[in-house]
Design a protein around this nucleic acid. Structure first.
Length: 116
DNA sequence: ATTCTGACAGCAA
DNA sequence: TTTGCTGCCAGAA
């Protein structure tokens, strides 16, 4: 049963938002981890795109808890002020240094192993 | 219709 | 180690 492109993307986007909303306070994950959890391991860029347009969603999306695999705050520029993202993360006990999460590995939250 | 870009990730040199 | 290319796929121009 073929389905419309719009429905497919809405599903994907919704899944991204769902997973993102499940990230616990004080924890973080990566775009690739979410992409793998959703079944398209090589579509990390789509996760980024979904978060880029997450303002279409009515719910609050803790997008600041999603960074790239190195723990780099590559999306900080999309949070109004360029220091907003780091600020939010620091409020959750995450240590930022030079646009990078210092305690990345100990705060990393992988939906694949955490949500099973 | 075609081209370019992107909040990524993996691999080759 | 760092840089650059490629796959991914949805929007914008």
């Amino acid at each position: 049963m073929p389905y419309k492109k719009e429905e497919r993307t809405n599903d994907f986007f919704s899944n991204v938002y769902e997973v993102t909303k499940l990230i616990p306070f004080g924890r973080i994950t990566s775009y690739g981890a979410i992409a793998r959890y959703l079944g398209s391991g090589r579509s990390a860029r789509m996760v980024g795109w979904a978060l880029n347009v997450c303002h279409n969603n009515n719910d609050f999306i803790p997008a600041h808890r999603v960074v790239n695999r190195k723990g780099l705050l590559t999306g900080k520029h999309h949070f109004g002020n360029s220091s907003t993202m780091a600020q939010l993360l620091e409020n959750e006990g995450i240590i930022i240094g030079d646009d990078k999460i210092i305690n990345f590995s100990e705060r990393f939250w992988d939906p694949i192993t955490e949500l099973q």
